[in-house]
Simulated scan of single mutants.
Amino acid sequence: MCGRMAITLPHQAMTEVFEATASNDLPDVPNYNVCPTVQVHAVTSAEGTRRLRSMRWGFVPHWYDTPTDGPLIINARSETVAKKPAFREAVRARRCLIVASGFYEWKREKGETPQPWYVTRVDGGPMVFAGIWQDWARGETALTGCAVVTCEANADMAPIHDRLPVILDPADWPLWLGEAGHGAAPLMRPAGKGTLSFRRVSTAVNSNRAQGPDLIAQVASGD
């Protein structure tokens, strides 16, 4: 799964990387502890134009009467995303790129405090997740929410966790955004071996209130 991330890339750099026009309500950067329900950076495409947008990290199905009317949905499993009523229309028609610098995952051992790891790309590029999004409104309350599509872990991730966000390479972006056709299902696969870099980080990030660059600094095992 993916339950926490960091984003340090400046807005101008994001617009250049994705060749996108930026909305004027983007979340502040850097943010070293991006948590569910906050606004994240997402790229959508329509009529040949890409937009860098702000979306709530938390997909709200259209039948919810309030955003908290059911479980908080921050991830969608690739194996079932095209079948579940909450997601099947979005994965056909409303796909997005969710932008991060890296994400956190926790290794859980019985009887021990979960140990956080920070995961980035080996090549230093932005971490771009396959996402789906949806507008939701009731009365005067309206929001646009998104979820990260996840898949089974690759061999590198498996010792830490059994799930992994679907991570898209630049060549994949046009297909996921619907610019290069509609057959995006083959993209919902684990990242190739050697794509990701892992480092142990401080348990300070276990608090969703923690902030600052120290959160992504490597620490020795056991710290």
Rank of each mutant, 00 (worst) to 15 (best):
V60C: 14
G111P: 13
G192M: 11
G222N: 07
P186Y: 05
K83T: 13
N206V: 08
P10A: 13
F87Q: 08
E105C: 04
S101L: 02
R121G: 00
E47I: 11
S45G: 12
V149W: 02
G48Q: 03
R50Y: 01
V38M: 14
A171F: 09
D65L: 12
C35W: 13
R53A: 01
A210W: 03
G111A: 14
A153Q: 01
E79V: 11
N33L: 09
T144W: 01
Y118K: 00
D69Y: 11
L168G: 05
T66I: 12
Q39N: 12
S221D: 12
N154K: 05
E16P: 15
A22N: 10
S197P: 11
L9R: 15
R200M: 15
I167Y: 00
E179R: 11
E152R: 07
T80C: 12
T37C: 09
I98G: 00
R138V: 12
E105N: 06
S202M: 07
M188Q: 11
A155F: 08
T44K: 04
P170E: 10
D65Q: 11
D69M: 15
V128N: 00
P30A: 04
I160D: 03
P67K: 04
R209T: 10
P27F: 04
G212C: 11
A13V: 14
M188V: 10
R92G: 07
E140V: 14
M188N: 11
W57C: 02
A22F: 06
T21Q: 08
P30K: 08
M5I: 07
T66L: 14
T113F: 13
M157T: 03
D156G: 04
G125N: 04
A100Y: 00
C2K: 02
P61G: 08
L175Q: 13
S221N: 10
R4Q: 05
M5C: 15
G178A: 09
R95D: 00
D169R: 14
L26E: 00
V60W: 04
Y104T: 00
Q39C: 10
D156S: 08
R53H: 02
V205H: 03
P174L: 10
V17Y: 09
I73T: 09
T15C: 06
S45R: 02
A42R: 00
A153E: 02
T21W: 03
G194S: 13
E79I: 06
I74T: 06
R56D: 07
E112T: 15
D156K: 02
F198E: 07
R53L: 00
W133Y: 05
E109Q: 13
A191C: 08
V99H: 01
G139A: 15
R200I: 15
G131W: 01
E89Y: 14
Y104L: 01
C35D: 09
N154D: 06
M1W: 09
R88V: 06
A6Y: 03
L72W: 08
C2V: 02
A137D: 14
M188P: 12
I216L: 03
E89C: 08
G102R: 01
G145P: 07
W176H: 05
S101F: 02
T8K: 05
W117Q: 07
A13Y: 10
N206W: 04
D162H: 06
V149F: 02
V219Q: 09
V205P: 05
D25M: 09
F18G: 00
